[in-house]
Amino acid sequence: MLVSQMLKQRNTGVIEIERGRPVRAAARLMAEHDIGAVLVRAGEETCGILSERDIARGVSRQGARIADVPVEVLMTAELVTCRPADHSDDLMRVMTERGIRHLPVVAGGEIVGMVSIRNIVKARLTELETDSVALRNYIAGTT
């Protein structure tokens, strides 16, 4: 399935947080929107991504203090992105090789969505169902 189709299936939009805000605020945004990562913005520019994993790593290294540290301390500044025309199989490869679960979708220089490993698994399930229906129709048609 293409990324563009996946975004049509479920596009939560892009949830962002301003640089300088505390990690706790980012964790609240994730809980509120039921997502696993938020983008970090510096003015008009996206400057990083912060995931549940980053927060857990922060708790691991710094303990209690991380709730109040600014998001940029824990975020990953290097963004790995994908495009609407990419195929979910290719995204699986990127996520597995990089050990990441979220890919911002870039079109025309803008971030237009976010694809998570969960969306990829859901896309695969849809494919399986479509294949199964096609197969049943084929069999029904040939008898």
Partner: peptide, 18 residues
């Protein structure tokens, strides 16, 4: 899970880690 830890930070803040 990592999600549970992030949720604890969201609701408990500073006291979450302990």
């Amino acid at each position: 899970s990592e999600r549970d830890i992030a949720r604890a930070v969201a609701t408990e803040g500073e006291s979450a880690a302990r």
